[in-house]
Simulated assay, not measured.
Amino acid sequence: MMKSVLLAAALLGVFSTAALGDDRYVSRPPVVLSPDLAAPWIMQLSGSGNVRPVVYQRPVIVQQQRGLFAPRAVRRAPAAQQVSAINPGVPVIRGQIEPQFLPQMVDYQTKEAPGTIVIDTNNRFLYLVMANGKARRYGVGVGKPGFEWAGVHKVTRKSEWPDWTPPSEMISREAAKGHYLPARMDGGPENPLGARAMYLGSTLYRIHGTNAPWTIGSAVSSGCIRLRNEDVVDLYERVKVGTRVIVI
């Protein structure tokens, strides 16, 4: 009798468990996929009927640049380069200037009186002679091959943010290369004469600033002597009309 009761109870438990199992999946929860298909597909099970998908933020991959071995995709485009006048085999990155061309006080033995300007075109330096065997030295850009010159002049005029009227010969010369210059350009940051200009004698030559400071230390001009804008402003304040200028 007891065995029959136990057997009946066991069978009842088995059928009840199966029934409960079937009831659990009578109403199956919705399967929701993340709308961001770039993220892992996340299946969420819920019987609420109001399921908010989980969206993962896309990973941000940061690639380190290591010189020339940086991945091609993240390697920066090379900057425009200018060949160094001091070290011909070493390119100078556009926007930079070699340290020796920055203004500095140097020893300078000369018979010229203090206040005289001496421009050493071969070495790309301008010296403002000071007392006691000293000079204030600036890096300069000078005339390109075929436009070099030497001589002695005086500063006959000074101008702040000068306008620029290219000589007709320059306009014709550049037009032959496919470069068309304006007949006149107002003074300003884009003007090739830069922030200041000091005119030499009755010539077309000037000591002036530039809108291309990376050319300092190079032979690139049509004969003018160019300095960085911050340097030409400094020199301009120290120089008077009538100053003797020696170009060697």
Rank of each mutant, 00 (worst) to 15 (best):
R72I: 15
V54D: 08
V55K: 07
S48W: 01
L37H: 10
P35I: 02
P40D: 04
L37N: 08
Q57N: 05
R66V: 15
R75I: 08
A38H: 09
N50S: 13
A73C: 12
Q65T: 12
P71W: 03
S48A: 07
L37E: 10
R72W: 11
A70L: 03
V54A: 08
P59E: 08
R75A: 14
Q63C: 12
N50G: 10
N50H: 06
S46C: 08
V62F: 05
P40H: 04
A38G: 09
N50F: 14
A38Y: 06
L45M: 13
W41T: 15
A38W: 10
P53R: 04
Q63Y: 07
I61C: 09
N50L: 08
Q63A: 07
A70E: 06
S48D: 09
I42E: 11
W41L: 14
L45E: 05
G49D: 12
R66C: 06
R52F: 08
I42L: 07
F69D: 15
L68Y: 11
P59V: 05
I42K: 11
P71M: 04
P35L: 00
P53I: 03
V54I: 12
P59Y: 02
G49V: 06
A38P: 01
I61N: 09
G49N: 04
Q65Y: 02
A38Q: 13
M43T: 14
A39G: 06
G67K: 02
Y56P: 12
V74Y: 00
R72N: 06
V74A: 07
V54N: 01
L68E: 15
M43W: 05
V54K: 05
V55Y: 05
P71A: 08
Q44E: 04
V74W: 00
I42T: 15
Q65E: 09
Q64F: 05
L37A: 15
Q64E: 13
G67Y: 00
Q57S: 13
V54M: 05
A39F: 01
V51S: 03
V55R: 04
R66Q: 09
G49Q: 03
A73T: 09
A38F: 05
Y56W: 10
F69A: 11
Q44F: 04
S46V: 09
S46W: 02
I42D: 07
R58I: 07
P59R: 10
P40E: 00
Q65L: 10
V55H: 08
L45R: 06
V55F: 02
P53C: 03
R66Y: 13
P40A: 03
R66I: 12
L68C: 09
W41H: 12
G67C: 03
F69Y: 15
P35N: 06
L45Y: 15
L37D: 15
R52Y: 13
V51I: 13
